[in-house]
């Protein structure tokens, strides 16, 4: 356990292991996304009430689901960073935040685009959209706090604390917003809930969710690799790595 964590805490080891994971994760992500998108957008049957506009669900739902899960990934990294004082956990946390924020933004944007044909307006204070908006600000808060610190290690620890506070609060926020929405909106305008979704729509949706998880994981690893290089830029192993790459490049050119 301890030696493994020690290994995991070593930047060169993480850098190379992330590289070898990415080598097969990126192709899988691309294939899953392509298959899911074609299946959902072309082959799934149109919805009997919403017609074709429901198809934006194949982007909206996976983005929202993974954005929320991403916060928990980030908070887990935060907990590891606080408990085991691992620098690599800080890097994971720092890398999660912008990716999660982008996914949340995608969820909000697709929600707005979906809202136009469904409700005739770009923005509706629907429970899910409102929760997503709060989640977006939680991500923005993490990024802003990180950037405000001069010392990156302390920035990581502060964000770790904040993300843990967030994990306790997110369920409360989601439940509160749900309750608030049910209080103010008549049930008839309620969204077509997924519970009655036909298998022919559900299967591509599930595939897309898996694809977005893979997308999240590969973006996270890519981001972490670049963060590791940036932070360790003055160390010997990075210098060697760069020189080796340069050597390869010139050898290829010859």
């Amino acid at each position: 356990m301890w030696t493994w964590f020690h290994k995991f805490g070593s930047p060169p080891w993480l850098y190379s292991i992330a590289g070898s994971i990415l080598r097969w994760l990126v192709p899988i992500t691309v294939i899953l996304l392509a298959v899911g998108a074609v299946w959902g957008l072309l082959y799934a049957p149109p919805d009997f009430r919403q017609g074709n506009s429901y198809r934006i669900m194949f982007v909206h739902v996976p983005a929202s689901v993974v954005a929320l899960a991403g916060y928990y990934v980030m908070a887990t990294a935060g907990a590891v960073s606080l408990i085991w004082r691992m620098k690599m956990a800080d890097i994971a946390l720092r890398s999660c935040a912008p990716i999660g924020a982008m996914l949340t933004f995608l969820g909000l944007l697709s929600g707005a685009v979906w809202g136009k044909p469904t409700w005739g307006t770009w923005w509706v204070w629907d429970a899910r959209v409102t929760s997503m908006l709060v989640l977006f600000f939680l991500y923005v808060g993490i990024i802003a706090l990180y950037e405000a610190f001069d010392n990156e290690e302390l920035a990581g620890k502060a964000c770790a604390v904040l993300s843990l506070v967030g994990t306790v609060n997110i369920p409360i926020i989601y439940k509160s917003v749900d309750w608030w929405y049910s209080l103010h909106q008549p049930a008839s305008i309620k969204f077509t809930e997924d519970s009655t979704m036909d298998g022919s729509m559900l299967r591509p949706l599930l595939l897309m969710i898996v694809a977005f998880y893979c997308l999240f994981a590969s973006s996270l690893l890519l981001y972490m690799r670049s963060e590791i290089l940036r932070r360790e830029s003055s160390t010997n192993w990075v210098r060697k790595l760069v020189l080796a790459k340069a050597g390869q490049g010139s050898a290829n050119a010859v």
Partner: peptide, 18 residues
């Protein structure tokens, strides 16, 4: 610090306000 604290905290204030 200034405005940063509002950015960090206001999302957590949502349930209390509701």
């Amino acid at each position: 610090g200034g405005i940063l604290i509002s950015l960090l905290i206001i999302p957590f204030y949502v349930p209390v306000l509701i």
